[in-house]
Design a binder for these strands. Structure first.
Lengths: 161, 161
DNA sequence: GCAGTGAGTTCCTTAAAAGAACCCATAACA
DNA sequence: TGTTATGGGTTCTTTTAAGGAACTCACTGC
């Protein structure tokens, strides 16, 4: 399988990875959520090569995750902002950060805190069931084929422990 | 920045990406959550080269995400199972799948459904605040430096919109 | 008229992934 | 007794991607 075929797969994970499944892309998005918008700021903060940065920003724009917005004319300068679609990736970033906080933090603790504006508290993200509201983890969930699965009989979902 | 330095950064996202920030790794993990455990099964399902698969499995074992468990002696054969640390990555997979379901699904809908064993319903994962229980999205959260931030004054968190 | 800025491109070198072939212990088959 | 199959890799060569540095271009401001 090549990466170009990835978004054709009947798998939402593969399709998402076709958009953001690249380390630089996710680091760029992290900075977007921190309010970074301009080419040279990304470059300075990430230590990414301009070449790769230009490529990743372009792909994110093509996928509707970022949008270019002019912030001055003569000479035209544009910055990159998260679209609604991009903002919706916050859950992905949060999940990654949260795992890192739990399993990769050094003795000094988590590097950044997330403050919930609503209640003013430092929060951890919890994942819960949209139907009953209860908190869920891996063992609470069973996976089964949905409508978009298609009729590839041969690719049977194995038993989930 | 090289990938070897990534887990040294004072950023939980970067540190998590040092472990799982690779498309193949995440696809391998997806299959782990579907119950796949053996080398040749991963190979068949993913269409990954054996070379890369061996490398990714080894890295996941080194990072304590997977563990090798013998399932027969003579000849010794081992399978790969998620550790607790690995199971805890479920939130990451769920977040990625969920975004794909919302933004990358074709007209037929989501390829797989997640059933919450607790209530028996097909669920979507919701993210909520650990302190007040309210549902949160990108705009409800403010980021600020935490204990593990260190004293790099120059790297100021920019204003978040 | 010269240096600086923002946002890239181009060119060349190094690293990683794809693809195919090979290896090794054992078992099962004929 | 040799022949093929299985599981889980490793080796080798080619293609693709990333790193690093220099160049471009349309301005601005000094």
């Amino acid at each position: 399988m090549r990466w170009e075929e990835l978004d054709q797969q009947p798998c939402s994970l593969a399709r998402t990875l076709a958009v953001v499944g690249d380390r630089w892309t996710l680091l760029v998005l992290r900075d977007c959520f921190l309010g970074i918008r301009r080419f040279d700021e990304f470059e300075k903060r990430l230590g990414i090569t301009r070449h790769v940065l230009a490529d990743r920003l372009k792909k994110l724009v093509d996928h509707g995750v970022l949008i270019r917005v002019p912030y001055q004319q003569r000479p035209l300068r544009e910055e990159y902002r998260l679209t609604e679609r991009g903002l919706d990736l916050h859950g992905v970033i949060l999940a990654l950060v949260s795992w890192g906080d739990r399993h990769m933090a050094d003795e000094r603790g988590a590097p950044v805190r997330h403050v919930h504006k609503g209640c003013g508290q430092v929060m951890r993200p919890l994942i819960s069931c949209s139907e009953c509201g209860e908190q869920v983890s891996a063992r609470d969930i069973r996976v089964e084929p949905g409508e978009g699965w298609g009729d590839r009989v041969e690719e049977v979902l194995p038993q989930v422990r």
